[in-house]
Design a protein around this nucleic acid. Structure first.
Length: 429
RNA sequence: GGAAAGGUGGCCGAGUGGUUUAAGGCGACGGUCUUGAAAACCGUUGUGGGUCUUGUGCUCACCGUGAGUUCGAAUCUCACCCUUUCCGCCA
């Protein structure tokens, strides 16, 4: 949520931000007008309330019955006026809030301006793609041959784009989760186990609602919404709180499944486990002061990169442009891992600084010093990492000519083997 | 799911329609005293909005949430949420 004072005083900044994001600006003019109406109605209503408050107190002390009745009648009329004004005020406020809630965050001036992903900038590529002495296979071939992946049974259970991980396939994912959480804990993030279903308000605060309702799953009868990312419950962990400045920055990490209703383009990403309605992710999250958020953002990027480095994967770092960053973000780095089998750079992480945008929606503040007014914290989130795509990168990069898959060093103690050779070995496990 | 009791400031806790402008206490902060500290004493104390004469300013709202009754609601009515205890069910 943007500060209404900012919108009022510097509407041009907001207008330019919308244009840079390739979004239209007509809501902005409506907001400015509603804001004027709101303050006018509020002023009138409050003046009448002030009058009623003082007169009502006098009524309580009045002895003269006639005089008393006259004042009561007068205040009854004032009350009626207040009722009318308040109804008007509520209407205006509802409209104003609805429109303000649709305004995205203002992009950081450091990011490239551009209407679409074409304008994203690749900052660096880390590592050299491995040279294979054979044609590397895509993970769906490797996985099914080794008995790690079962697409048919996934479809049987839940339909297209669902899959089952078998045996060491499931175990590889669990090993990745356990190792990543341990790594992040070592990096200073506290591990949290969170609800996977949350209330509607929680999704509003992190910025998914109202705009992206179509991408969410929810219970038809109860106010339960399936989380699309751990960022949602993590943002709201401290919702409505005034944090102690000495406790900042707060670092959290969490493993959750993620549920996303996505309109999948027919024919794209159909094969394999790259994109589905359900996937697992380990997430990092920070609450910090405005002064440190840029620095914390860079550190979080390094923490996400450490996961890729630990796994020995080749990746590149992308700085997203104004047209491609998320609704709540001011600046976002994407990390893309190289997958030689399917020949793609796979987005495995997105590391964003949301500034005070989510903190306003979730009302998360801190007191800079004793006695000072509370101010909004900054919030940051980053994947560390998304599991299916990390699985793809590991499987495809560590495959050998005979179709077996070597296990990255760091995962061996979690999975209990150095190599996945095939179904026969699976049975012996 | 059933029954009962509850929900008031950072915390405890009083408050059943009008000196409540939410008592009192604890804590915290500031001051006096002290070589220093403690104690004692004095003072201060939440959040958000509006407004201008930017002030120790004025004003509105906030006692779980939302409606309602009333000239006036923490207080009365209704609905809902949450907590605690007991019963039932359950991995």
């Amino acid at each position: 949520m943007l500060d209404i004072n900012l919108i009022r005083i510097q509407p041009d900044i907001v207008r330019q931000a919308l244009l840079n994001r390739n979004e239209d600006t007509h809501n902005l003019d409506a907001i400015l007008q509603l804001d004027v109406q709101r303050r006018e109605a509020l002023k009138q209503s409050e003046q009448l309330r002030a009058l009623r408050n003082t007169v009502s107190k006098e009524i309580g002390k009045m002895k003269d019955a006639t005089q008393r009745e006259a004042k009561i009648a007068e205040m009854r009329r004032v009350g009626d006026q207040i009722t009318v004004l308040d109804a008007e005020l509520r209407k205006v406020e509802t409209q104003l809030d609805a429109l303000t809630a649709t305004l995205p965050n203002i992009p950081d001036p450091r990011i490239p301006v551009g209407p679409s992903e074409e304008s994203n900038v690749i900052l660096r590529t880390v590592g050299e793609p491995r040279q294979f002495g054979f044609q590397p296979k895509p993970h769906w071939e490797l996985g099914t041959a080794l008995g790690l992946l079962d697409f048919e049974r996934g479809v049987k259970l839940s339909g297209t784009r669902f899959y089952v991980l078998n045996g060491l396939g499931a175990r590889l994912q669990r090993a990745l989760i356990a190792w990543m959480l341990d790594l992040h804990t070592f990096q200073g993030y506290r591990e949290e186990y969170l609800p996977f279903m949350v209330k509607q308000q929680i999704l509003f605060a992190s910025g998914q609602l109202p705009k992206f309702k179509d991408n969410l799953y929810h219970d038809a009868e109860e106010d339960f919404w399936m989380v699309p990312t751990a960022e949602v419950p993590l943002t709201n962990l401290h919702g409505g709180e005034i944090l102690k400045v000495d406790d900042l920055p707060l670092h959290y990490c969490a493993y959750t499944p993620c549920f996303r209703r996505e309109k999948m383009k027919a024919g794209s990403d159909v094969r394999g486990i790259k994109r589905g309605h359900q996937f697992d992710k380990v997430e990092m999250y920070k609450f910090c002061t405005p002064e440190t958020s840029n620095e914390e953002h860079e550190k979080m990027l390094a923490d996400a990169e450490a996961v890729l480095k630990g796994l020995g994967l080749v990746y590149r770092v992308k700085l997203l442009c104004t047209g491609d960053i998320g609704f709540s973000a001011r600046i976002t780095y994407d990390l893309e891992a190289w997958a030689p089998g399917c020949g793609e750079w796979l987005e495995v992480s997105s590391v964003s600084n949301c500034g005070d945008f989510q903190a306003r929606r979730a009302n998360i503040r801190y007191r800079p010093e004793a006695g000072a007014k509370p101010e909004y914290v900054h919030t940051l989130n980053g994947s560390g990492l998304a599991l299916p795509r990390t699985m793809i990168a590991v499987m495809e990069n560590y495959q050998r000519a005979d179709g077996s898959i070597e296990i990255p060093e760091v995962l061996r103690q979690f999975i209990g083997t150095d190599v996945i050779v095939g179904k026969d070995e699976l049975r012996r496990q």
